[in-house]
Simulated assay, not measured.
Amino acid sequence: MPRRTATLLASLLTLIALLCAGALIPVPYSEMSPGPTVNTLGKHKGETVLQITGHKTYPTSGHLNMTTVRVTNSEYKMNLVEAVYGWLTHDNAVVPHKTLYPDDKSADEVNQENAEEFSQSQESAKVAALKQLKKMKELDIKVGSHIVVGSVFKGGPAEGTLHAGDAIKAVDGKAVHSPSDVAKLVTEHKAGEKTVFTVIPAERVQAAEKAHKEPKGAKNITITTVKAPQEERAIVGIEAAVDYTFPFDINITVNHIGGPSAGLMFSLGIIDKLTPGDLTGGEFVAGTGTIEETGKVGPIGGISMKTVGARAKGAKFFLTPEANCATATRDIPDGLTLVKVSDLDDAVTALKNIREKKTDKLPSCPKS
């Protein structure tokens, strides 16, 4: 066999061996890619996304799409070839596995945390939307709020005595108005001391919420504090949170999506449905961003994949959290306009300019 032919054959066999090895060698990475987008004004899997009952709603048109990122599951073992291909692929991102699934949390804990964030973002979106409508002088709606047991830690002193959803009215006879009040009053004790929680059971709270009333029927529960792990402070093993009572029903039917990044688009969808006229003017607008009850919009992860996913579905405008602008502008999909927003006021004003064809007034993300 000629030397040159032998060399080429050896090289080819070496390449094949390396590719085979690469396909078998697991690497500690996961992949993120553009996920589905959902029009908050329309339907998802046959169900209306925003279902409002007990208050007048108005027809809508156009799109206000929330956007998502698809990630490989925690058990998926990426190999070297897949990682290299992912790094070379324009629309995907390969990231360290522990970025998505930290070593100190199980996959179930990560999924539960994402589900809780998604649920909380829905509540924040409702509150922010109704406050914005009041600011716009469209509706003057009162939203009731109360402090509740958000979660009970397994094995903690409160397990079996306090339950998620219980409304906390006072600790040691002192009224609480925020989750931090609960923590402050508990930590005034030393480990081993007793503290008294005045609570309304979760079932009474749920009944009151269905009737759109403030919950009643409080009772006192005594709990012995313990020392916090690795800290010199007393705890009872709960996490306090804020719950809201709305004067009518707003249900969000999107399931199997985690994280808080759809908050902004849920708020805008609610505003559109509760006001006459079209917020979008019939245009295809997508976006992302966490939302606080005050209307402040916060940054999210995977912005580049969300813009790609939105444009692929037909979006022309993308509402972008101000803090994500620098990353988003590195690779803007053709035909997509990034609109910088820092709060709900910015988003509502941007939509007004879009529907009035005044796109020159839109605040754009500065290019990095």
Rank of each mutant, 00 (worst) to 15 (best):
D166Q: 10
K43N: 13
T222C: 13
M136W: 05
Q122I: 06
Q132R: 14
V152R: 03
V297E: 04
N92E: 06
P366E: 03
D346I: 05
L13N: 01
E239H: 12
K174Y: 03
S74G: 12
A107W: 13
Q206L: 09
T224C: 08
E117Y: 02
A315F: 03
K219S: 14
N220R: 14
L80H: 03
K77D: 14
F153Q: 14
I354N: 01
S180C: 09
P179R: 04
P2A: 10
A312F: 10
L139F: 03
D343G: 11
V143P: 00
R70D: 13
T294C: 00
T288C: 04
S119A: 14
L24G: 07
N353E: 08
H256P: 02
L100Q: 06
T329Q: 10
Y101Q: 00
T198H: 07
F284H: 09
A83E: 07
E138H: 09
V297K: 00
V205L: 15
N79K: 15
K56W: 05
G155C: 07
V95T: 10
P260A: 06
G46Y: 12
A312Y: 14
A211W: 10
C365Q: 01
D343W: 03
D345V: 09
I332V: 14
P26S: 03
I303Y: 02
V297S: 07
F246L: 14
Q120R: 10
V196L: 15
V152K: 07
G269K: 05
S145E: 12
V182G: 02
S33V: 10
E239M: 12
K367L: 08
R70F: 03
V84A: 15
E116T: 04
A83S: 11
H177Q: 14
P229L: 10
K77P: 11
A326E: 14
G173Y: 09
E109W: 06
G155Q: 09
V143Q: 09
H189K: 14
A158C: 03
M66Q: 11
V254D: 01
H55S: 08
V69N: 01
M78N: 05
M1T: 04
T161Y: 12
E283D: 13
I147N: 08
S33K: 13
T225A: 04
G160P: 03
T224L: 07
K45Y: 09
V176I: 12
I16Q: 09
P102A: 06
T5V: 14
E75H: 15
M265I: 02
A228E: 15
E116W: 01
N65S: 15
A125N: 05
